[in-house]
């Protein structure tokens, strides 16, 4: 995987580059918006990590410009947390992911892998959490080495959980993802579905668990 790292802080860039290389990425590093734009135009990257604050311009402006020109590769944004502005929220809604500074390299790697699993990638990918695996192309589910049969809706829910493992899915997010706009929905439809999926995973001996946070949502992780 070829990765473009756009970060002007020399030390931070060096540490990030080392961490990303260790995680298996082929990293090219640039330190200015102009170099970043030239590199993105050359178009040979699978993913980019973009610092928003660059010496010769704003990373978000650069991204908007390249997106308008047809750039499709996933971009992970590095940003200093600005709790009182809605900028972070804007990024969140924009589809690309963001990581707040300071960050752990593990977190950056995890987010990059999640971005690379996005369905707009032509190739099917295997998502693996603990002993649970899901192939997003043929929708086969494996627990350890045994296949697990799930209904269409259960599969949809499992994919949702595995793509956002370790993060909370609210009931609204699940409803929007799994049910049609006009579909009549029992108020406890999501709870019933989660309960069925949880029972099937446990029955098959899967190590990841689905936690219920009452009134908040659900979360899948693989903590011992």
């Amino acid at each position: 995987m070829r990765l473009l790292l756009v970060e002007d802080e020399r030390e931070l860039a060096g540490l990030l580059k080392a961490g990303l290389k260790a995680a298996g990425f082929a990293v090219d590093h640039v330190a200015t918006a102009a170099d970043a734009e030239a590199a993105l135009i050359s178009g040979s990257y699978d993913i980019a990590v973009l610092d928003l604050r660059l010496p010769d311009g704003d990373g978000l402006d650069l991204l908007r410009r390249r997106r308008a020109a047809g750039l499709t590769l996933p971009v992970l944004i590095l940003t200093a947390r600005d709790s009182l502005s809605d900028r972070v929220k804007g990024l969140e809604q924009g589809g690309d992911d963001y990581v707040l500074k300071p960050f752990h390299i593990d977190e950056v790697v995890a987010r990059l892998r999640a971005l690379l699993r996005r369905p707009n990638q032509a190739l099917g990918v295997n998502i693996v959490i603990g002993n649970l695996g899901l192939n997003t192309m043929d929708l086969r589910v494996m627990v350890a080495d045994d296949p697990l049969t799930l209904s269409r809706r259960e599969l949809g829910l499992l994919e949702l959980f595995m793509r956002r493992a370790g993060r909370v899915l609210t009931k609204e997010v699940i409803e929007q993802a799994l049910y049609g706009f006009n579909e009549e929905l029992e108020s406890n439809a999501v709870e019933v579905l989660v309960h069925r999926l949880r029972r099937k995973l446990a029955g098959a001996g899967a190590t990841p668990t689905i936690h219920t946070l009452r009134g908040i949502g659900y979360l899948m992780d693989d903590m011992p």
Binding site: D82, P102, I105
Partner: peptide, 21 residues
Amino acid sequence: TTDAAHELRTPVAVLTARIDT
């Protein structure tokens, strides 16, 4: 405050990343 945010967080980010190594 925007400049201060950047100037203060960058060394903390470097520290965090270095501890991760």
